[in-house]
Amino acid sequence: MSSQGFELPLRLLLAFRMLIDELHAELARQGHPHMRPMHGFVMQAIGPDGTTAVELGRTLGVSKQAAGKTVEALERVGYVERAADPRDTRRKIVRLTAYGIDALNRSARIFDTLRARWADELGEERLLALESDLRKMTPASPWRLDIPGWFGTL
């Protein structure tokens, strides 16, 4: 079976979209109805030690203002909080709340479940081969957190 060049990125995007949609449906069932796809990138960029809006914008590839608006939205639903930076009280640090950490921990477990479902459907060997092939064709680190800026959605 032959395929046209444009189908590969579309199929990869569709697979990503399916996994993310399933993740968010399950997160909603588990008490996180306000999580959105870009929130995961933002919360990963905030990290366990917190960050400033300027640093967050730089990591995400968006403006400080766009990062600030996203932080406000995450703060309204309880995923992050702002506090004075203990090293420089003129600066504000954005930190994950316990609710935000819970969302990330649940996401990790749900992704494991989704991967297991793919392994059941495709077979573990084929899935491992797919993952191996994708590792060969992509940069070594999968942690590209600048996707929001690349997509232009923040």
Rank of each mutant, 00 (worst) to 15 (best):
residue 23 L to S: 08
residue 126 R to S: 06
residue 62 V to L: 09
residue 81 E to D: 09
residue 69 K to Q: 13
residue 53 A to T: 13
residue 43 M to R: 08
residue 56 L to C: 00
residue 118 W to N: 09
residue 71 V to T: 08
residue 123 G to T: 04
residue 137 M to Q: 08
residue 80 V to M: 01
residue 32 H to N: 02
residue 64 K to E: 13
residue 130 L to M: 11
residue 28 A to Y: 02
residue 130 L to D: 03
residue 128 L to H: 04
residue 121 E to D: 06
residue 128 L to T: 03
residue 16 F to I: 04
residue 93 I to E: 08
residue 105 N to P: 04
residue 21 D to E: 14
residue 5 G to E: 07
residue 116 A to E: 10
residue 153 T to A: 11
residue 117 R to M: 06
residue 53 A to R: 15
residue 124 E to M: 05
residue 145 L to E: 06
residue 107 S to L: 05
residue 81 E to A: 09
residue 79 Y to C: 07
residue 129 A to N: 05
residue 146 D to H: 01
residue 79 Y to I: 14
residue 86 P to Q: 01
residue 119 A to V: 04
residue 31 G to M: 10
residue 133 D to P: 01
residue 68 G to H: 13
residue 145 L to C: 03
residue 134 L to M: 05
residue 154 L to C: 10
residue 55 E to D: 10
residue 136 K to C: 03
residue 52 T to M: 03
residue 121 E to Q: 09
residue 58 R to P: 00
residue 19 L to I: 09
residue 29 R to E: 11
residue 97 T to C: 08
residue 139 P to G: 06
residue 35 M to Q: 13
residue 51 T to V: 01
residue 9 P to R: 00
residue 3 S to Q: 06
residue 28 A to W: 04
residue 18 M to G: 10
residue 32 H to G: 02
residue 110 I to T: 10
residue 67 A to H: 02
residue 48 P to S: 10
residue 74 L to V: 04
residue 10 L to R: 14
residue 146 D to P: 04
residue 103 A to I: 09
residue 67 A to Y: 01
residue 3 S to E: 00
residue 63 S to W: 14
residue 56 L to Y: 13
residue 26 E to C: 07
residue 139 P to E: 02
residue 150 W to V: 14
